[in-house]
Nucleic acid binder design. Structure first.
Lengths: 341, 341
DNA sequence: CGAGCGCTTTAAAGCGCTTTAAGACGTGGC
DNA sequence: GCCACGTCTTAAAGCGCTTTAAAGCGCTCG
């Protein structure tokens, strides 16, 4: 009985087919196709020709299996975070430059970090880049004993993993100083919760205020990473009838929530109240949110993360490394001098 | 000379090690570990034990290579799009249910769709799900001759690929009808550019207006997919000093830009002007943008997309399929009766 | 003129897993 | 006691590619 499904689904050409077509061995073909040194120019040409003629594409799984090294870096991200999206783009570019490829694994509602990591472990990754992971430090450490791990954007007081992050406290301090420089004294902070990142930022606020002699003005409102927490803070301030002249928030999302409530209540920004966020996420850049914010320098962060990976993998570094990048204040339209001058 | 790098990096245990530890053949071990029928319960237990003891994890590359089928679905997305992020989450879930796994490949500034697709082709994917691809129809067709391709969210007048998308025209029509129902007559549309999706939505607007006897009020402002185009449209309307009572935009981003300019100019929304977007992206749901918008029903879309894949792969379907899902208007805070109403 | 020497090419041995066909081992029937 | 038969187990042949050690091939040189 003949196959009934129409024309045979053309089997993908294999290296062997290319070699046969070119009249050489698979070894030569492999060498040529990877641009490895050895084969003479005549062979080169014939193989390349044959490959083109057949429309050959190497099978990654096979090549991965045979190769000594995979040159693969696994990246765990939260697909919903615009900030992570940005980081992934940059990591892609940086990895490319070093001849590494990426395997993405995303955290979703039904797929936790552990599972995302496992997928990567099973995929022959040589190293892991974890974007703002929430795994406990011990787990990170354990992973690091298996393969180089670089954590981006979160401090990890651990013996093993590399960390690349921004100086959170300094970022908030810059924001506060910027505002103080404009003449603000009543500068309120909207907190980001119990995480280690939030603690860093809150500490930066408190120290900066003290340093500037504004200890009297310290005000920290509770909050978290979402828009709603900023909105709540704004409503609280409005209800108290006692608006500060400036507010610094844990992140851009919170700032956007805050902004929105203020604008809808007819509060002029930055005329009456100045607002500063954190992250410089695409959200902040939306033409008309135009938020003054603290940039995490994502391209710098990712460049360093990939560099850390490469140093471990190709450079033989084995001691731990923590790189703290100075943040950069991005002044946009939500900050200005306080009302009373 | 002895290895100087400290203790041997413990080689990952292989199937063979597990088999040896359990005192069985690799064949049995493989069978057990995949839950395949055959091995008796005694063997089962010993293998499972051994695997646990050694901390065995199967190597995906090897298993992929040896397996007849990869059970892998390749997904091309734009990592920056919050809408795609959402879709990926849902595809993940749906694929899981059918026993398929995902390989993500993202489009970035320096990595176009073609390259993203190629990576997937080389990864033994059995089918491709393309989120809002911009590849020309011929290329999609060519791909479809290699493996099942499902395009999500964009009409493709082509012979091969499956398409799962929302009825764009109907979505906009719903928006217009909603507004007309509230008493609006001057309903302006902000366009989304030259794409085939934009054409569908624009057509929906025009037909709905005519159907409602509002042909006189037809007004289409040029625009594209970004915030700035909405902002431009708003400025144009303000400058003309002739605001409509309602505006429908190509997508949520455009609506957000528009909203922002209106709010900052002191125009009350929805008091003076109602605004409707399209996509129901996370952006629209931001607590305080609270945009009335047209939902693309992403979970339905992805469920159908995965179903289409499975039907082709496991069900032997070979004829083309286009599924058009009815959109759903999500009424939020940016629409209300017109001022004079 | 044969040894010796680069340069190219290739045979063959994997990479770690799956799968299939054949083997081993009881069981029960005749 | 022998054979047919089902159940479990395994040897062995790949999957498609990389890599290494060795072979092949002109050459030059002594």
């Amino acid at each position: 009985m003949v196959d009934v499904d129409g024309p045979d689904p053309v089997r993908r050409p294999r290296l062997q087919d290319v070699a046969a077509e070119a009249g050489v061995s698979t070894a030569s073909a492999s060498l040529v196709l990877r641009g490895a040194p050895g084969p003479g120019s005549a062979t080169r040409e014939r193989v390349l020709d044959a490959a083109a003629r057949l429309g050959y594409r190497p099978d990654r799984a096979a090549s991965l299996l045979a190769r000594r090294r995979s040159r693969l870096i696994g990246v765990v991200m939260d697909v919903r975070s615009t900030f992570h999206a940005q980081l992934v783009e940059d990591v892609h570019e940086a990895a490319d430059e070093h001849g590494y490829d990426l395997v993405l694994s995303t955290v979703t509602r039904t797929r936790d970090e552990e599972r995302a990591v496992e997928t990567l472990l099973d995929s022959r990754c040589e190293a892991l880049v974890l974007l703002g992971p929430e795994l406990p430090a011990e787990r990170l450490d354990a992973l690091d004993r298996q393969l180089p791990v670089v954590v981006v954007g979160r401090p990890v007081p651990s013996a093993g993993v590399d960390v690349v992050r921004v100086a959170d406290d300094e970022g908030v301090a810059q924001a506060v100083e910027h505002l103080a420089g404009l003449g603000h004294r009543r500068i309120t902070y909207v907190d980001g919760g119990r995480g280690v990142i939030a603690a860093g930022r809150r500490g930066g606020y408190e120290r900066a205020m003290r340093r500037l002699g504004l200890a009297q003005q310290l005000q920290v409102l509770p909050g978290d990473a979402g828009e709603e927490s900023g909105a709540r803070a704004a409503r609280a301030l409005l209800a108290a009838g006692d608006l500060p002249t400036a507010v610094v928030t844990y992140n851009d999302h919170s700032a956007v929530g805050l902004l929105d409530v203020l604008l809808r209540s007819g509060v002029d920004v930055p005329g009456a109240v100045s607002v500063v966020g954190f992250d410089d996420s695409p959200l902040a850049r939306l033409a008309h949110i135009d938020l003054t914010t603290v940039s995490q320098e994502s391209d710098e962060l990712t460049r360093l993360a990939v560099q850390a990976v490469v140093e471990r993998l190709d450079g033989g570094r084995s001691e731990r490394r923590e790189v703290v990048v100075p943040p950069r204040l991005v002044v946009r339209g939500t900050t200005g001098p306080p009302a009373g001058g």
